[in-house]
Structures are given as structure tokens and as C-alpha cells.
């Protein structure tokens, strides 16, 4: 009691530990916002698979090509960094130390994300059909061509 009494009086004349209106900066190595780098990505969709909360969704193109659209929901993300560790290509997914902004009503993050989830699901089915078609066509082509040529093209 006496100890705290003296400490209180001492604190009265010392600099307070809290500062008005200044937020602290995130240190180096803080697990913040995840940044996607389209140039480096090889679209293996491993990040989508490992994400525990489905905060990454790829929308597949209709023509069956490997040109996927990356979608990321920072409000759903739990910033565990598992996607970054799963990524086989260095620099395609980076975890920065940027502290994410809170979502507001104006952003309408929920409805937008539900739309993306729906589109991702639909486009994947279409893409799979398109891919199957493409493969069949490729198979047909390969059958027409001599087998030695096919091997060479694969290399």
C-alpha cells in the first residue's frame, strides 16, 4: 500500500507511458497483409488448398487455360502464413508487415466475397469441362501425329 502510494506520487511527476493518438508501428516480421504477385505465380492453387479458412479463391477462365484470377479476402484471412509457406515459387505470395485495415459497411466485404465464392465454384466446374475437352482435342491431335514428335514436344 505504501509502496504503491509512493509510486503513484512519483508517477504524477514523470512522463506517462502512453502517448496520445499515436499508434505503434508493426515490427519487422509482423504477419500482416498477404500480397500476390501475378507475374511469378504458376497457378498451382496450393495456397487455395492449404488455407484453413478459404480466404483465397481462384476464379478459373472459361477457355480452360492456366490464366486464373487470384482473389483474396483480408477480412476472412487469419494471417497464419500457411499459404506463403506452401507456395512453391518464391515471391509469388509475400507476407508483408502491413497491418490490414478494418472492413467497413461501405466496402461491403461479405456480399462481394460470397459472389466471388459462387463464381469460383461455378467457374471451376466449367473450367474442368473445358479442360477435359481441350485434353481430348490434344489427344486426338497427338494420335494423328507420329509418336516421336509428341515426345519431342513434351520435352
Amino acid at each position: 500500500m505504501l509502496k504503491m502510494f509512493i509510486e503513484s506520487l512519483k508517477n504524477l511527476f514523470s512522463e506517462p507511458a502512453t502517448l496520445p493518438g499515436i499508434g505503434t508501428e508493426a515490427p519487422k516480421g509482423y504477419r500482416g497483409l498477404i500480397v500476390f504477385n501475378k507475374e511469378k505465380c504458376i497457378f498451382c492453387t496450393k495456397c487455395e488448398l492449404v488455407c484453413p479458412v478459404d480466404a483465397i479463391k481462384f476464379i478459373y477462365p472459361e477457355d480452360g487455360s492456366r490464366n486464373l484470377e487470384f482473389n483474396y479476402n483480408p477480412f476472412l484471412c487469419i494471417y497464419c502464413g500457411e499459404c506463403v509457406r506452401a507456395c512453391p515459387k518464391d515471391g509469388a505470395l509475400i507476407q508483408t508487415n502491413i497491418v490490414p485495415e478494418p472492413g467497413t459497411q461501405e466496402d461491403n466485404p461479405n456480399e462481394k466475397w460470397f459472389e466471388i465464392e459462387r463464381r469460383a465454384q461455378e467457374s471451376k466446374k466449367k473450367w474442368q469441362i473445358a479442360l477435359a475437352k481441350k485434353r481430348q482435342e490434344a489427344l486426338k491431335k497427338a494420335k494423328k501425329q507420329p509418336p516421336s514428335d509428341k515426345k519431342g514436344s513434351k520435352k
Partner: peptide
């Protein structure tokens, strides 16, 4: 204010 300063806060 005084109370906060005694607790080492800005107040």
C-alpha cells in the same frame, strides 16, 4: 487527469 498520471497514463 491526475488519476491517470498517477497510473502512468496520459489520461
Amino acid at each position: 487527469v491526475v488519476k491517470a498520471r498517477m497510473q502512468n497514463r496520459q489520461g
